[in-house]
Design a protein around this nucleic acid. Structure first.
Length: 480
RNA sequence: CGGGGUGUGGCGCAGCCUGGUAGCGCGCUUGCAUGGGGUGCAAGAGGUCCCGGGUUCGAGUCCCGGCACCCCGACCA
């Protein structure tokens, strides 16, 4: 029985995470180092994330397209910072069809370069702008250290790429897409992210500046969960993307890019999971409700199963994602634990006693054991389940928000910052240091500037590191 | 790329020190009972012991070489 328990978060968070990923049936290890096999249950979770984002992209005027996996090596080299940032982690194809290639092909680590090459041809006039494209794709980055979902050699993501006539338009787009990410994270994934701007040290290779949504995991480390880059005219110049404006003047475009990856799956796991397994927000859960039928004797079976099927159909017709667990030879207790491991928000139990009384048991995943279990009438089940799903969704967000706030500390001195980081948590304080100062903090504490939050206090203060006057606060934390 | 560790049925491990023809738990199959919080009993199936070489009558075990993976750091969505 002890062997069935998962390693507690408090004992070894990293071990807990690894066990949950495999035991909740999200993924398998693959034969290739650092690559992940995403199993159906994990992929359904990703599909829900995709759907939530894609809907928002369409609503803000973007269209999906698809560009090649292979990029001519020379493309990467056209933007100096970009190639410098990515070259250490490229996978390169040098032989194909049994012969050495004239020019090696890079397996895309991101698609700015090959998409800009197309944008050059698609854009002639200010009337062609803005150009708003997104693609869902796989990318490859040969990372030294990998973790399931958080950092894998190959991963799935979406990358938005847009071109605009002015800096202001590009900046508005960059911020808009960060808002889209934050809206998705908070309202669908129940992850209370902090929006902000990256320091120059942490920005994307080739960007003017980068915005981020940062989330706090249950070990109090930060996870960069989505980024939006204002690329300025850097890529437009490198790829010659020009247009004629209203005054017949030739101008370079202003471009943006933004991405969210399968890392978001890891964010959901590490934001909400507990020692019993996953806790999925109802809006993303592959199954929002699981029905566990219970019967003692064979002669009770048909009636219980018929009732379960009637309820399943009723919930399903109402648009609720419901699964009926009819597995033979597995005890109810086993199924309860199994579905708790998989994080299903609401469990519906129905047995002989319920048939007599016209009731069912409803258990919510966000509240442990008997506390979260109640017997309710079968009549009006749809409304009751809907209400419960809403409550679980809200409760997960509330819990995560409280956790984040309880573990975010204001610091005025470097000593205080050290203490907060050492104890585990986010440290927020005034900052006017240089990139070198930032590097020293990282060196000495392991913490980096996660972002300069948009949400800033009024006024100004003194830099916690240099003591110089500072205009803005930064959040420091250890990060994945 | 530095430091540590591990390679033995699907998974987790023991066996290695002290060589003698592979074992335990979980899972899987079948049957009977059981079923409202990780069920019990019984009978089964399943293994190139990471690879190559050496020592030996005999190697999972000893020696040499290689490979892979995992964990911890530095780099990164």
């Amino acid at each position: 029985m002890a062997s069935q328990a998962v390693t507690p978060q408090s004992q070894d968070f990293s071990k807990w995470y690894n066990e949950i990923v495999y035991r909740a049936d999200l993924a398998d290890q693959s034969p290739v180092r650092g690559c992940l096999i995403i199993k159906p249950y994990g992929y359904e979770l990703w599909e829900a994330i995709k759907a939530g984002l894609d809907r928002r992209f369409k609503a803000t005027g973007h269209q999906n397209a698809y560009f090649p996996l292979f990029i001519p090596e020379s493309f990467l080299k056209r933007e100096a910072e970009h190639v410098e940032g990515f070259s250490p982690e490229l996978a390169v194809v040098t032989i194909a069809g049994g012969k050495p290639l004239e020019e090696p092909l890079v397996v895309r680590p991101t698609s700015e370069t090959i998409i800009m090459e197309s944008f050059k041809n698609w854009i002639q006039s200010y009337r062609d702008l803005p150009l708003l494209i997104n693609q869902w794709a796989n990318v490859v980055r040969w990372e030294l250290r990998t973790r399931p979902f958080l950092r894998t050699t190959e991963f799935l993501w979406q990358e938005g790429h847009t071109a605009h006539a002015t800096y202001e338009d590009a900046e508005r787009e960059t911020r808009q897409m960060l808002d889209v990410y934050a809206d998705f994270a908070i309202n669908d994934a129940a992850i209370p992210v902090v929006q902000g701007r990256k320091s120059d040290r942490e920005k994307f290779a080739g960007a003017l500046h980068t915005y981020t949504i940062e989330a706090m995991m249950r070990d109090k480390k930060a996870l960069q969960s989505g980024t939006s880059h204002n690329l300025g005219q850097n890529f437009a110049r490198a790829f010659g993307i020009q247009f004629l404006d209203e005054n017949n003047q030739l101008q370079y475009c202003w471009t943006t890019s933004w991405g969210v990856s399968t890392r978001m799956v890891g964010a959901v796991v590490m934001t909400h999971g507990d020692d019993k397994g996953l806790r999925l927000p109802p809006k993303l859960a592959p199954y929002q409700v699981v029905i566990v039928p219970i019967f003692k004797a064979d002669d009770e079976r048909p009636a219980v199963i018929a009732a379960a099927e009637r309820l399943r159909a009723e919930l399903s017709d109402a648009g609720i994602r419901v699964h009926s667990d009819l597995r033979e030879g597995q005890s109810p207790g086993f199924k309860f634990n199994d579905w708790e491991m998989r994080g299903v928000p609401v469990r519906l139990e129905i047995g002989p006693k319920d048939l007599e009384k016209g009731t069912v048991a409803l258990a919510r995943r966000d509240q442990p054991g008997k506390e979260g279990k109640q017997f309710v009438s079968q009549a009006g089940i749809v409304e009751q389940v809907r209400r419960l799903l809403d409550e679980v969704q809200a409760s997960l967000l509330r819990q995560a928000t409280e956790f984040r706030d309880a573990n975010t500390h204001d610091v005025a001195t470097y000593d205080q910052l050290r203490q907060v980081i050492e104890a585990g948590g986010w440290a927020r304080g005034w900052w006017a240091g240089s990139g070198d100062d930032e590097a020293r903090v990282k060196d000495e504490t392991g913490a980096t500037i996660r972002c300069f939050p948009f949400d800033q206090p009024d006024g100004a203060g003194r830099c916690l590191f240099t003591g110089a006057p500072a205009q803005r606060q930064a959040i420091f934390a250890k990060a994945y």
